[in-house]
């Protein structure tokens, strides 16, 4: 019973913390756009929180480069359990067009575990919404 209540509340209230791990801004502005009136992801209870300690879902954009790698890991550790990670955009999923540059890695999953990949360069706000909702469908 308590378990079901917890699952229900988790599905209905994903609080998002956004990390830009050296992204080009494209995914970031589309993520912010998904909060704005035309898309309004708050319909599903998702809000952008300013502190990682408040977050349930970590959205990472950008190629994780050498500078942001450690910071990403540190922020990930600050998020209380249960937590989920979304890799947003081609760069976060696999390095995108920057794959092979000397300073960047091959996506977020090399640094922290990822629960959902949303490819696209950048993905439409609807695609972001689809990804978040798909993640919520899998939350247990």
């Amino acid at each position: 019973m308590l378990e079901r209540l917890a699952t229900w509340s988790r599905k209905r209230s994903p609080w998002v913390f956004h990390i830009n791990a050296s992204s080009c801004n494209g995914c970031d502005i589309e993520l912010v756009a998904s909060l704005t009136p035309l898309y309004d992801i708050e319909r599903f209870g998702a809000i952008l929180v300013p502190s990682p300690r408040h977050a349930d879902v970590l959205i990472v954009t950008g190629t994780v480069n050498a500078q942001t790698k450690d910071r990403l890991r540190r922020v990930y550790e600050q998020v209380p359990e249960p937590k989920h990670v979304i890799a947003l955009g081609a760069c976060a999923a696999a390095g995108g067009v920057f794959k092979g540059c000397y300073n960047v890695g091959q996506g977020v999953q090399d640094v922290i575990p990822v629960d959902m990949f949303i490819p696209g360069c950048p993905p439409r706000p609807e695609a972001i919404m689809y990804g978040v909702l798909k993640l919520l469908g899998e939350v247990k």
Binding site: T63, N65, F98, C101, N103, V104, C121
Partner: peptide, 23 residues
């Protein structure tokens, strides 16, 4: 946000660089 674009550009064809610099 340093990704090393200028260095990477030296090893990529001209047209591909267009897409990389766009990003």
């Amino acid at each position: 946000v340093h990704r090393g674009l200028e260095k990477a550009a030296e090893s990529r064809p001209w047209v591909q660089n267009m897409y990389m610099f766009e990003r």
